[in-house]
Every structure is written in structure tokens, then in C-alpha cells.
């Protein structure tokens, strides 16, 4: 059914200012005080009514996905994104649109006078339109939240990847906490990048701080060791806890790499590989790192 937009257009043209005033008032009632500057709310509302006006004049009021509605959509996106960022709830965000219903219907009622059929028609038209706009707002809200979550995940990933240099040519990656597949992957990529940057021959992956390892994570570890070899560096794994060793054997994952009990043992082996020795100054004797640590 094609709906006439003449009356809606007329109402918006004639009563734009009082409509905005009443709308802003209703919105302020619905929001907690201090959530939004009054001036900002007013300018947003004014802009929106203006955009709505021109979209109704030039566009199809049955679908807001048409080009004539681009300005309205952009405005909604902007308002919604800002609110999502400020931590508004979905209903607080949708209030922006739904609070417009009451004043708009009121003016439509005044225009129609006693013609009940016409009023019902007009309210139906306006309501369908506002519902569409409201749904669009919700979609935009959802999208903004997804973007925020995505960004936070990325930030967290960056935080959790410290690669440290123990000696020239020796890197260490102390892993702490539960490893999921995504985190392991990023940590490993970082390690390989760092190997190139520091020209390290040996990288020690220490998993003392990792409570459990599942098959997928074990496979990532193995993949990293293999990838490092392809690049021309050796990986050692240290700090495998007894439970993890058991899990790995049960899972049938064979860690076909050099593994050492502690990072100290791994470092000691690394020194030997790059042709360095640690000398005890008192006895002038060469000593492994684990022995001297036990003094």
C-alpha cells in the first residue's frame, strides 16, 4: 500500500521548532542527568528533524535504505556511535528515536481533527517510518559495540606478548596464563618477528606460567619451532610442568623439540651453542647456570 506523505511533510514543515523542543524535553526525562550535554542533545535533535524533513520531501517513506535517506542514516550512525562509546544502554540509545513518537503523533492528531480514519492512517505511516529508523539505530548500536570489542581484543593481544633478549643472539618468551589458540598465534608471530629483528640464533619459550596446554596450543608451539627452524633459528622449550607433560603424552602430541626443565638450563645450553661459557669468579671454574644458581 502506497502511503501518502503529504500530511507528515506538512507537520514537519510547520511545527519543526516546537516539535524539537518537546522531543528534547522528553529525551531529557528518559536519560539520567548529566549523561549528555543539553546543548548537544538539542543540536543533534535539530539536525535530525531537518534531515528527516528533507528526506520525507525527496524520498520514499517506506524504505529508509534509499539514497534520499543517506543524510538521516549518517546522522543516526554518528549519534549512535557516540552513545555506544559513552556507555549508553541500547534502550537509552534508542530513546533518541522513540521519544519522537509522542510529539509527532500529537501534531498529526491536531492536523487530522476529528477524522479518525485519516488519523489512524497517518499514525500508521509515521509509526512504520519511526520503527524502521529505530531498528536502524539498534543495528548501528550493535555494530559500534562490535567494533569496540574488536579493538579491545586487539589491544589485549598486543599487551600480552613480551619477548625479552637474554643475551646477544638469545631471546626468551616467558608465557604466562592460559593460552588460547588466537593468543598463542599472535605471541608466536611476535617471537618470529623479534628473531629477525635481533638476529637471534636461539629462542627459549618458557611455559612455566602456563597451567594447561591443549592439543591446539601444543600444535601452535610445534609450528613455531618448525617455522623458526625454516628461518634459521633454534627454539628451546623450558618449564614444562609434570601435568602438561602428562597431558601431551595422553593427547598423543609428541613435542619433537629440545626441552629443558628450567629456563636456566635452557639458557645454559644456549650459551654452549653460541660458544659462550659462564665462569665462577671464586674458583675460576666453568659452571653451568643451574649449579651457580644453587649456591
Amino acid at each position: 500500500m502506497a502511503r501518502s506523505k503529504a500530511l507528515l511533510q506538512g507537520v514537519l514543515d510547520k511545527n519543526a521548532d516546537p516539535l524539537v523542543a518537546r522531543w528534547v524535553e522528553l529525551q531529557r526525562k528518559a536519560l539520567k542527568s548529566g549523561q549528555l550535554e543539553a546543548s548537544e542533545l538539542e543540536s543533534q535533535s535539530k539536525k535530525f528533524v531537518k534531515a528527516l524533513q528533507s528526506a520525507v520531501v525527496s524520498g520514499d517513506i517506506e524504505s529508509i535504505n534509499t539514497p534520499a535517506w543517506a543524510e538521516v542514516r549518517d546522522l543516526l550512525e554518528e549519534v549512535t556511535r557516540a552513545r555506544a562509546l559513552q556507555g549508553f544502554s541500547p534502550s537509552e540509545t534508542a530513546t533518541f528515536v522513540f521519544a519522537l513518537k509522542e510529539p509527532l503523533f500529537e501534531y498529526l492528531r491536531r492536523e487530522c481533527g476529528k477524522d479518525a480514519d485519516k488519523l489512524a492512517d497517518e499514525i500508521m505511516t509515521a509509526s512504520t517510518l519511526l520503527d524502521q529508523i529505530g531498528l536502524y539505530t539498534t543495528e548501528m548500536y550493535q555494530k559500534s559495540r562490535e567494533q569496540i570489542i574488536q579493538r579491545q581484543q586487539e589491544e589485549m593481544m598486543e599487551l600480552s606478548t613480551p619477548v625479552v633478549q637474554l643475551w646477544r643472539g638469545i631471546l626468551a618468551l616467558p608465557l604466562i596464563g592460559t593460552l588460547d589458540s588466537a593468543r598463542t598465534q599472535i605471541v608466536m608471530e611476535n617471537l618470529l618477528q623479534e628473531i629477525v629483528k635481533t638476529e637471534a640464533e636461539i629462542a627459549i619459550i618458557d611455559i612455566t606460567g602456563v597451567p594447561t596446554v591443549d592439543t591446539l596450543v601444543a600444535q601452535h608451539l610445534l609450528k613455531t619451532v618448525e617455522a623458526a627452524r625454516l628461518m634459521g633459528a633454534d627454539c628451546l622449550i623450558s618449564g614444562i610442568r609434570p601435568q602438561i607433560a602428562q597431558t601431551l603424552v595422553h593427547l598423543g602430541v609428541e613435542l619433537n623439540v629440545v626441552s629443558k626443565a628450567t629456563m636456566a638450563d635452557a639458557l645454559s645450553l644456549s650459551f654452549r651453542r653460541i660458544g659462550k661459557v659462564v665462569i665462577d669468579r671464586k674458583t675460576k671454574k666453568e659452571s653451568g647456570i643451574s649449579e651457580s644458581a644453587a649456591d
Binding site: 608471530e189 618470529l192 609450528k223 617455522a227 628461518m231
Partner: peptide
């Protein structure tokens, strides 16, 4: 001796 393989290339080759 093959030298200079990039990390991304190495990971992809293993996969």
C-alpha cells in the same frame, strides 16, 4: 643453505 625466510612465509610453509 636457504637464508632470510620471512616469519610469515615460514609459518605459512609449516601450515
Amino acid at each position: 643453505v636457504v637464508v632470510g625466510m620471512r616469519p610469515a612465509v615460514a609459518i605459512t610453509l609449516v601450515e
